[in-house]
């Protein structure tokens, strides 16, 4: 595996920490957008050139780097929020949990029965670490918009794992997944606005109570 790809994967994992440690939603959105762009560049670096790859790369960078971040930024300007207040677990503890999860991801990846060609690559532990970071963001944050960001990180992790199989993955499947993601973000944007209109805040923990 070439070293540039490895450095980029390390960067992806660092962005996980940035997303976990920041309280500002704009920073988190930009971090996830950057992560998406890096994931878009990666397939070109690790596989030999083909038009299929170019299509995936362009599609990914457009969707994850431009379209989804602009939708999310639109949502936060409409709901007029700038930062996540009072997450269920504080930023420093989540950062530390994130670090532990990353370490566990490395330990777990070493135990996985992978194809011999994929053994010892940085992809697998990075994918698992990104996945777990996404989960962590989803369960520890209170605001709907932070949870959407967690969901995006989760999806990035799945994509990173899928990168190993890019050659075998048809364009249609890739395009379908991206389309699903965009529709999902779109629907969540609408829901966020709806929640903020009804409750004058987008704190999802209020949705657990049945009556006023």
């Amino acid at each position: 595996m070439n070293t540039v790809a490895d450095q980029l994967i390390v960067l992806v994992m660092l962005i996980n920490f940035a997303a976990l440690g920041t309280g500002r939603l704009a920073v988190a959105i930009r971090a996830v957008a950057l992560q998406g762009v890096i994931l878009g560049i990666l397939p070109v670096l690790i596989h030999s050139f083909s038009w299929h790859l170019v299509a995936i790369t362009v599609g990914l960078i457009l969707a994850k780097g431009i379209l989804i971040p602009s939708l999310l930024t639109g949502a936060i300007t409409k709901a007029r929020i700038t930062r996540e207040m009072e997450p269920f677990i504080g930023y420093v503890p989540t950062l530390l949990i994130g670090a532990v999860l990353t370490a566990l991801a490395f330990a777990f990846a070493a135990k996985l029965p992978l194809a011999p060609a994929h053994q010892g690559l940085l992809f697998v532990p990075a994918a698992i670490a990104t996945l777990l970071t996404g989960f962590l963001l989803l369960v520890t944050r209170r605001k709907a918009i932070s949870q959407v960001i967690g969901y995006l990180v989760l999806e990035n992790g799945i994509f990173l794992f899928g990168l190993l199989l890019t050659e075998a993955m048809p364009v249609m499947v890739e395009a379908g997944a991206l389309l699903d993601l965009i529709v999902g973000i779109f629907v969540m944007g609408i829901i966020i606005n709806q929640i903020s209109r009804e409750f004058s805040s987008i704190d999802t923990s209020r949705l657990t109570a049945l009556k006023e």
């Binding site: 390390v10 994992m13 660092l14 920490f17 440690g21 930023y91 420093v92 950062l95 530390l96 994130g98 670090a99 990353t102 370490a103 490395f106 070493a110 940085l122 532990p125």
Partner: peptide
Amino acid sequence: VPQMLAAACILAAFSLLLVLR
């Protein structure tokens, strides 16, 4: 400040993780 220092610890720990791998 403690947040920043925790971040420094995590950077170093992550670096250790990469060389131990």
